[in-house]
Design a binder for these strands. Structure first.
Lengths: 215, 215
DNA sequence: ACAATAAACGAACGGTCGTACTATTATCTA
DNA sequence: TAGATAATAGTACGACCGTTCGTTTATTGT
């Protein structure tokens, strides 16, 4: 019935099953803790059976990261493209980013975990993380450029600075949520985002462009 | 000759030696990777000899985190208290935070590593991280309050929001430095900090309060 | 200098790690 | 449905894990 995935062979099915558990585990315990044995036990496979799907632990780690990114795009980024071009879309990218963990049934973000785990450890995993993160960064900068084009953002808005600060807000939000268990974490993040966008608005525009009512 | 540490006994000396290596290692490879064997080899001790200093791996991890925080306070936070009360002190706390890694000869920040590694894993390590981070957060909020008292910050400045965003800036800076290897990371962080403080200034004051010349 | 004590060592433990092999079973294709 | 192929299981490996224990060496206070 479904069109695109013509034939999910048995191998692809179990591989997806493994990656489901792997993404879950990597978010909480990190990518180094992605051990073959634990994952095999969790999926009901034998160690060697699971291992055969990837060929090495590093390949498993990379596949897990790729899968996490794929899910993020699926549940967060791509849906945000439905929002109208400009500030509203940027806001939806941000909001979806804030919510994507719970939306995809995860307990922690594998992308953030991979980021801090490998950012200072050269190798294939770091390269993969960097590539994914740079792509995401680039998409955000593109979003800023669009907001400039629509006239909402000032012409001299600094897209790279915007992306820099946006990631900081997300990072801090995760910390407030997970470490401090602060229920107001999302609200703080949104307030920070509003301040960030406000400082990039074209001067002639009123504030009412933002998606939330001015109270 | 030196006054305070009356008698650094042999045990305390080697313990400090171990923690030196441990802090270094934990920053880059994380606290789970703080294995007894690697650390023993690195310090020239035997596994059992090193182990005796802590009694368990978890105690070693906690001691390493404590040591990292102690160093941070020593080289970054406490020196910032020399700055005059208010915005200038806040700015120095921030600047020292940005520079403390290189100042203490580390390659990566163990505190950030511990934060993302344990923020979603309940246990003694998470408790320790939370305690340290909450203390730091509290100190920053106190700094904001002082800046309000001096009249530099608006009376309704949100100290908690300030601390929230400040940590985000630091996080993003680490990512830009380590993952993206962006030489402009510190400059971006400072720009973000300036924007953050600017939005908290008392309305009657001019901008010239900030420490950096207006170009 | 000597006894009391602290510090470090060496060997061994049961486990788990990643990976390599071969054998067995399930799935696909003709 | 038979033969080819893909998927999984089983077993074993050397290495390292955290931890324990008894022994030996170094430091300390007297």
């Amino acid at each position: 019935m479904s069109a695109l995935p013509l034939k999910p062979s048995k191998g692809e099915e179990t591989r997806a099953l493994i990656l489901e558990a792997a993404v879950q585990h990597a978010g909480v315990h990190g990518f180094d803790a992605l051990t073959i044995g634990v994952l095999a036990e969790q999926t009901g496979l034998s160690k060697s059976g699971l291992f055969a799907h990837f060929g090495s632990k590093e390949e498993l780690q990379i596949a897990t990261l790729d899968e996490a990114v794929r899910r993020y795009n699926e549940v967060a980024f791509i849906p945000a493209l439905k929002a109208p071009r400009g500030l509203r879309r940027l806001a939806m990218v941000f909001d979806n980013w804030l919510q994507w963990i719970e939306r995809s049934g995860l307990k922690a973000c594998p992308m953030i975990a991979a980021n801090t785990e490998f950012d200072d450890r050269p190798g294939p995993m770091r390269d993969a993380v960097m590539q994914h993160m740079q792509r995401l960064n680039h998409e955000i900068m593109r979003g800023v450029q669009i907001a400039i084009d629509t006239g909402e953002f000032a012409k001299d808005a600094d897209a790279e600075q915007f992306a820099f600060e946006l990631f900081g807000i997300i990072s801090s939000c995760y910390r407030s949520r997970n470490l401090f268990q602060d229920p107001a974490a999302n609200a703080r993040a949104r307030k920070a985002f509003d301040r960030l966008t406000a400082s990039n608005l074209a001067r002639t525009e009123p504030e009412s462009i933002t998606r939330r009512t001015p109270k």
